[in-house]
Design a binder for these strands. Structure first.
Lengths: 122, 122
DNA sequence: GTATGAACACACTGTTCATAA
DNA sequence: TTATGAACAGTGTGTTCATAC
């Protein structure tokens, strides 16, 4: 799959980080963009990080291009009419492989930060 | 001091990370750019990260602008003639304050990565 | 107003070029 | 050649604009 690199040598990119979370959410149930955004915003706000909506959409579009997700439009009728784009896993194997890749980068990053704390504050 | 932001909300930037290491090295002894570069390259190579020379120089110039370091040229005579720019701490207090700031960002980043590993792989 | 998306603009950083000794 | 630095170029991401409902 990977023509684009997810790892840059330094720390993991925001895009890959969000793609990981999005995958994990969608593995459990269907989600659409704004929903994911709110979920992630509240999850990370205590850590001083609030993702932007455009970055979520870019992550979703990436996962489409990667062939990992598929999308379909859903029209929900209710008190408030709304049309949303929901995503689901298209290729479980590729998803799994991608997550494994990201995990390696997370581990590496954690080591790097831990080392920096060790080297500079002790 | 801070007109420029060192923290972006997501993870710490490479620049701030390197400025921290540079400060810690220079607290102990005098260093010049290429020397720091080699030191840091070998330190991080096992972690899959190799900083570039331009980024080191940018970090040093930043620290000058911040008023934390001073520079002076040194001409070393020897088997191989070379002229280098060595740095030393100009303002210990500001240096200390800056390091404290970066530490907070490192801690935050470590928490974020740890959370991601927890949330997505368990 | 909510949801999706694209366009635009800027910040960060890697690569290349320039200069000195 | 080694050291320093600037210039240039690409990429990642935040802000703004556009469209549909």
């Amino acid at each position: 799959m990977n023509r684009k690199r997810e790892s840059t040598g330094f720390l993991i990119k925001q895009r890959a980080f969000l793609k990981l979370y999005i995958l994990t959410s969608i593995e459990k149930e269907r989600w659409y963009g704004m929903q994911l955004l709110e979920e992630l915003k509240t999850a990370f706000k205590p850590f001083g990080y609030e993702p932007q909506h455009s970055e979520i959409y870019r992550a979703l579009h990436d996962l489409l291009e990667d062939g990992i997700l598929t999308r379909h439009k859903i029209v929900e009728e209710g008190a408030k009419y709304k049309e949303v784009v929901v995503y689901s896993i298209k290729d479980k194997e590729t998803a799994k492989a991608y997550k494994k890749l990201v995990k390696a980068d997370l581990d590496r990053g954690e080591q790097l930060l831990r080392k920096a704390l060790q080297d500079n504050f002790s």
